[in-house]
């Protein structure tokens, strides 16, 4: 085994570990934060970054062009669908009154929705 592939393997392992740790932070955040909107921050951002790190790490260990391209596809769809899912959760939580308005400092959307009625 050449020095280069050993380096890539080690770097890949480190990246996979970092990615898993980042995703774990997201889970801790979901437990610690207090309402749906704050939790959706914790559920989406560290998780997207975590899966990116994991997949880069896997790519460094696989090192074949086609597999790396497939991993790129996974990252692409993750980045396209994650925000949509979190937006839908946030939107439905807002519209069904799961938001504690007392805890929001101010709310510019509420004014607009009130105007419509």
């Amino acid at each position: 085994m050449s020095a280069w592939s050993q380096t890539a393997d080690t770097a890949g392992a480190v990246l996979v570990f970092l990615g898993a740790a980042t995703s774990l932070l997201g889970v801790i955040g979901m437990l610690r934060l207090r309402d749906v909107l704050s939790r959706s921050h914790a559920a989406t951002k560290p998780q997207t970054f975590g899966i990116l790190l994991v997949l880069i790490g896997v790519g460094l260990r696989m090192r074949s062009g086609m597999d790396v391209a497939t991993l790129g596809l996974v990252v692409f769809f993750q980045m396209m669908t994650g925000p949509v899912a979190s937006h839908l959760v946030a939107r439905s939580a807002y519209r069904t009154g799961q938001i504690d308005h007392e805890r929001l400092l101010f709310d510019e959307l509420d004014e607009q929705l009130t105007d419509e009625r």
Binding site: H41, S86, H87, A90, Y94
Partner: peptide, 16 residues
């Protein structure tokens, strides 16, 4: 809106 979801400390609630 998709790109903004990655902005530090922001998550999209509604797009008009």
């Amino acid at each position: 809106a998709v790109a903004v979801s990655n902005v530090p400390g922001g998550s999209v609630v509604e797009v008009r």
